[in-house]
Design a protein around this nucleic acid. Sequence first.
DNA 1: AAGAAAAAGGATATAAATGTCCTTTATTGA
DNA 2: TCAATAAAGGACATTTATATCCTTTTTCTT
Lengths: 149, 149
Amino acid sequence: MTFSKSFGYALRGILYVSLLKDEPRKISIDEIAEKLSVPRHFLGKIMKAVVKAGILSSTRGLQGGFFINEKTLGTPLLTIILLTEGNNYFNTCLLSMRKCNSSNPCPLHNKVEEHKDGLLQIYGQTLVSDLLQDDKADFIKSLATVEAA
Amino acid sequence: MTFSKSFGYALRGILYVSLLKDEPRKISIDEIAEKLSVPRHFLGKIMKAVVKAGILSSTRGLQGGFFINEKTLGTPLLTIILLTEGNNYFNTCLLSMRKCNSSNPCPLHNKVEEHKDGLLQIYGQTLVSDLLQDDKADFIKSLATVEAA
DNA sequence: AAGAAAAAGGATATAAATGTCCTTTATTGA
DNA sequence: TCAATAAAGGACATTTATATCCTTTTTCTT
Ligand code: FES
Ligand code: FES
């Protein structure tokens, strides 16, 4: 059920850049890290992988930064999950056995299969664009880590 | 979606001991580790926590080992999950924000809430006894880690 | 009482995830 | 061409999860 922090950072970074798609400027890692209250250098490392995967684009140098490309908004969540959690995220057995396998299922397998598939469906169908909200200010607020509940 | 290895080891250990509930002997950590192909010392540490939580019982000394008690078979999966993954497993936000909170939801929250709740239901309702199979030999086989698919 | 067996407990080791820092490379504008 | 800026890349530090080992305590058998 849980994803790594890397996934959270990646998705939030992508969403933040996507949200500002109409601004002429590119978005720097410093801005993203600050607005999301996320460790700057670690985020940089993750965003590099995001760009390498083609989910976002970036340029170096003055006026450089991150910006969306033709793939960004249509990227399914699943792509981002597999990027940060590894390609085997959905075929690892819940009980730490080698491969999740319905022909030789572990004791938990059949109990959760339905919901596991359901989540996989959702992750495959939900696009970055589906997660953006109209109210930008409110959305940015919901992207920032908040200590207090 | 994924649990830690500790959870897999714990549940499999519990299931193995439960499966042998009709045998007069107690089950040693060596036997469990060997049958499940799991690291012996690490498993010992986890089983200690399982016993401390009252899910299994154990005695030291000659003829000692692990055995089920009145709670074992009726223990819901959820109890074991919270034991190994921590009590906040189901209220941590998927995007690494402070608290999963439907009044101030992250962008992913509403998308997955239904399935998250569904899994929680299943984990709360599924008991150790529900995971045991009649065919012991087959079941033990399904408990053992298998390298090859 | 003595010895053996087995869990419990604690100390340490290794690996992976997370986080920080510094250097290099690319881009822009003067 | 030069200086400034920002991502990319790589080295290193810290923390957490996983794994191993050794000692202590308990229990049983003789
Ligand atoms: S979850 Fe264990 S085999 Fe599928
Ligand atoms: S999953 Fe993020 S707030 Fe609930």
